[in-house]
Computed example of a mutant assay.
Amino acid sequence: MANNLILIGFMGVGKGTIARELARQSGLFAIDTDDLIESLENKKIKEIFKDEGEDYFRALEKKTAKWLEKSVKKSIISTGGGFYKVSNLNKIGTIIYLESRFEKIIERIQHHPQAEKKFAKRPLLQDLEQAKKLFLLRVKAYEACANLTITVEDKTPQQIAKDILKLI
């Protein structure tokens, strides 16, 4: 593989899980933009949102994107739900949109053994009505910037990773 694979999609769709499975199947490293930002700031994402605000967080995403473009090759990159907005995304690698309906994403999180923790770490999922509006705004943008779209509903991470590896 010549460049990075970048997984985009709404929060909770499974980008991190699928990135780890892709890494297992391909032998490449998986990195997560939210983890990078938390390391950079020595704070959890929800704390950054609470203490500094969303604009500050988006600036950290831009900084992370510049670093990824310059420094990371042949890796799988899972991103935060709003990371698709960085201007250099297509210079970082092949963009793969993990597609799912909003209801299926919420159902996926609710059935996770640590569901409460999963919801708590996502500040923008605290109000599901507002989250659905955000989801509807983002869907077209995800589709527009993606090189590939993979539907993830009712598939295991293993199957999704196999599908992605076949397509690239």
Rank of each mutant, 00 (worst) to 15 (best):
2 A>R: 14
111 H>W: 08
154 D>H: 08
109 I>G: 09
111 H>E: 14
124 L>H: 10
128 L>D: 09
110 Q>L: 12
55 D>P: 00
75 S>H: 05
132 K>R: 15
40 L>C: 10
122 R>G: 03
3 N>T: 15
131 A>C: 09
121 K>G: 10
57 F>D: 06
84 Y>V: 09
147 N>A: 07
101 R>H: 14
158 Q>L: 13
165 L>W: 10
39 S>C: 08
56 Y>T: 11
64 T>I: 04
162 K>T: 14
3 N>I: 13
116 E>V: 11
74 K>Q: 13
99 E>T: 06
133 K>F: 12
35 D>G: 08
32 D>S: 07
120 A>G: 09
77 I>S: 01
33 T>C: 04
98 L>W: 10
59 A>V: 07
64 T>R: 04
156 T>C: 05
40 L>R: 14
61 E>S: 02
49 F>K: 04
136 L>F: 12
6 I>D: 00
115 A>I: 10
57 F>E: 08
21 E>N: 06
1 M>D: 11
30 A>V: 01
130 Q>L: 15
94 T>D: 07
94 T>I: 13
67 W>C: 03
81 G>K: 00
51 D>E: 15
99 E>H: 11
51 D>G: 01
137 L>C: 13
95 I>K: 05
45 I>G: 02
147 N>W: 02
75 S>M: 01
83 F>R: 00
155 K>Q: 13
83 F>G: 00
42 N>V: 04
55 D>Q: 13
37 I>G: 01
143 E>N: 09
42 N>F: 05
37 I>K: 02
74 K>D: 13
129 E>Q: 15
148 L>P: 00
54 E>H: 07
121 K>Q: 15
56 Y>F: 13
48 I>R: 04
86 V>C: 00
1 M>W: 09
158 Q>R: 15
86 V>Q: 00
128 L>G: 05
112 H>K: 11
113 P>V: 15
69 E>F: 03
74 K>H: 12
77 I>A: 00
18 I>G: 02
34 D>V: 05
106 I>R: 06
46 K>S: 11
163 D>Q: 13
111 H>D: 10
75 S>Y: 03
97 Y>C: 03
62 K>L: 09
111 H>L: 12
59 A>M: 09
10 F>L: 04
161 A>I: 07
9 G>L: 00
54 E>R: 07
161 A>M: 05
59 A>F: 08
119 F>A: 10
127 D>F: 12
11 M>T: 10
85 K>T: 08
144 A>Q: 12
52 E>Q: 12
71 S>G: 10
142 Y>R: 03
54 E>F: 11
131 A>K: 09
3 N>Y: 12
164 I>C: 03
97 Y>W: 10
94 T>Q: 11
160 I>S: 06
133 K>A: 15
31 I>G: 03
104 K>S: 15
115 A>R: 12
24 R>D: 10
9 G>D: 01
166 K>W: 12
79 T>S: 02
157 P>L: 08
98 L>Y: 06
101 R>L: 13
7 L>M: 02
105 I>T: 07
67 W>Q: 10
18 I>A: 06
116 E>I: 12
117 K>N: 14
52 E>D: 14
148 L>G: 04
32 D>E: 10
127 D>K: 12
136 L>V: 09
6 I>V: 14
79 T>E: 04
122 R>L: 10
5 L>N: 05
122 R>E: 06
123 P>L: 11
3 N>H: 11
134 L>Y: 09
156 T>E: 07
114 Q>Y: 14
22 L>R: 07
90 N>R: 13
104 K>L: 11
77 I>H: 01
